[in-house]
Simulated assay, not measured.
Amino acid sequence: MDLAPLAVMIVDDEAPARDRLRDLLGDIASEQPTQVVGMASNGVEALRQLEDVKVDVLLVDIRMPAMDGIEFAQHASRLTFPPKIIFITAFDEYAVQAFELAALDYLLKPVRAERLANALQKVRKSSNSTRDVIDTIAAPRRHLTCSERGKIHLIPIGEVLYLKAELKYVTARTLNREYLLEESLVQLEGEFPDRFVRIHRNCLVAREAVIGFERSVGEDGGEGYWSVRLNNVPELLPISRRQWANVRAVLGD
């Protein structure tokens, strides 16, 4: 039975490497039919292309500028219909072991046609969720992603002042605006422990953004509470009694 072509995107910062992979896909087309629907030089460019095209499998280099393959895979795994991921790497066998759990397969450069065909066959047979696999990666991202009306916004993690859980979303506040993230506050806290500190069950603040604390009077003259003031943020963010001791220990009096 004829196989349906797989929609493939090639992501590599070196043009000759992208061209070689495209040519290899052509060489094995009778065995593993594919259609190259996109080529990108880094993860940021690839995410932009994924806004407009459906991709079955990503062939992704690991070392790239702007956004490397690992972080790109983390973002791609959070798409509504995440593609399967095959890493392309120049690392030797020992170094590659660190990435085995992060993708369906990996190929060592220079890529051989037979090995590429086998990897694509794995894609066709696999029922594993890319989302579940990539979530095993421990390295924190340099960006968060927000999808708005079909467009993917990249939010540099260094620009996020606070993260607040509201209903099923998390609001990420930067100096310029707010973004809605479809991620959990617990997961974000675990991924960025050195960047954010929890001040309330529904709020994490960027440590570097804190400029002081203020004591507020409770409603109807009741017991007061502490709030944190962030640089360039007009509103005060309340600190829960449970978190106050830890916040004071981490951020200072």
Rank of each mutant, 00 (worst) to 15 (best):
residue 86 I to Q: 00
residue 9 M to E: 07
residue 242 R to M: 12
residue 166 E to L: 15
residue 212 G to H: 08
residue 17 A to I: 07
residue 146 C to Y: 08
residue 108 L to W: 01
residue 243 Q to H: 14
residue 231 N to I: 10
residue 198 R to H: 01
residue 203 C to W: 01
residue 202 N to C: 12
residue 118 N to T: 12
residue 20 R to N: 13
residue 199 I to P: 01
residue 158 G to V: 15
residue 103 A to V: 08
residue 96 V to C: 05
residue 123 V to C: 09
residue 129 S to Q: 13
residue 93 E to T: 01
residue 118 N to C: 08
residue 138 A to E: 14
residue 207 R to D: 01
residue 229 R to T: 13
residue 4 A to F: 09
residue 1 M to S: 14
residue 32 Q to E: 15
residue 68 D to Q: 10
residue 157 I to R: 13
residue 13 D to C: 00
residue 225 Y to D: 08
residue 188 L to M: 15
residue 9 M to I: 10
residue 42 N to T: 09
residue 60 V to F: 04
residue 117 A to Y: 05
residue 185 L to Q: 03
residue 134 I to F: 02
residue 65 P to D: 07
residue 109 K to C: 06
residue 227 S to R: 12
residue 49 Q to C: 05
residue 30 S to R: 13
residue 163 L to W: 01
residue 85 I to N: 00
residue 206 A to W: 01
residue 199 I to R: 01
residue 164 K to N: 10
residue 248 R to D: 00
residue 108 L to E: 07
residue 78 R to W: 07
residue 12 D to E: 01
residue 107 L to M: 03
residue 173 R to H: 02
residue 137 I to K: 06
residue 52 D to G: 05
residue 92 D to E: 11
residue 78 R to G: 08
residue 64 M to D: 08
residue 198 R to E: 00
residue 9 M to H: 03
residue 196 F to V: 01
residue 65 P to V: 09
residue 105 D to G: 06
residue 178 E to P: 08
residue 152 I to D: 07
residue 229 R to N: 11
residue 163 L to F: 02
residue 86 I to T: 00
residue 138 A to F: 04
residue 143 H to Q: 04
residue 233 V to R: 04
residue 200 H to R: 11
residue 59 L to K: 04
residue 31 E to I: 13
residue 214 E to N: 07
residue 149 R to L: 13
residue 192 F to P: 02
residue 140 P to C: 02
residue 199 I to C: 02
residue 12 D to H: 02
residue 124 R to M: 06
residue 30 S to V: 14
residue 98 A to G: 14
residue 17 A to G: 06
residue 12 D to K: 00
residue 28 I to F: 00
residue 140 P to V: 01
residue 234 P to F: 01
residue 26 G to F: 03
residue 125 K to H: 12
residue 79 L to H: 08
residue 7 A to G: 10
residue 250 V to I: 14
residue 201 R to A: 05
residue 247 V to Q: 06
residue 64 M to Y: 11
residue 73 A to L: 05
residue 147 S to P: 12
residue 44 V to I: 15
residue 58 L to R: 05
residue 148 E to V: 15
residue 164 K to R: 14
residue 76 A to G: 08
residue 199 I to H: 02
residue 163 L to Y: 00
residue 226 W to Y: 13
residue 198 R to C: 00
residue 42 N to F: 08
residue 5 P to S: 01
residue 65 P to M: 09
residue 72 F to V: 11
residue 165 A to E: 09
residue 22 R to Y: 03
residue 178 E to A: 13
residue 171 T to A: 13
residue 250 V to T: 13
residue 75 H to V: 07
residue 116 L to E: 06
residue 108 L to V: 12
residue 154 L to W: 10
residue 156 P to Y: 04
residue 80 T to L: 14
residue 91 F to Y: 14
residue 53 V to C: 07
residue 149 R to H: 14
residue 36 V to T: 04
residue 230 L to I: 03
residue 59 L to E: 06
residue 230 L to D: 05
residue 55 V to P: 03
residue 22 R to T: 09
residue 35 Q to L: 11
residue 129 S to V: 07
residue 157 I to N: 05
residue 48 R to V: 02
residue 63 R to Q: 15
residue 218 G to N: 02
residue 5 P to V: 08
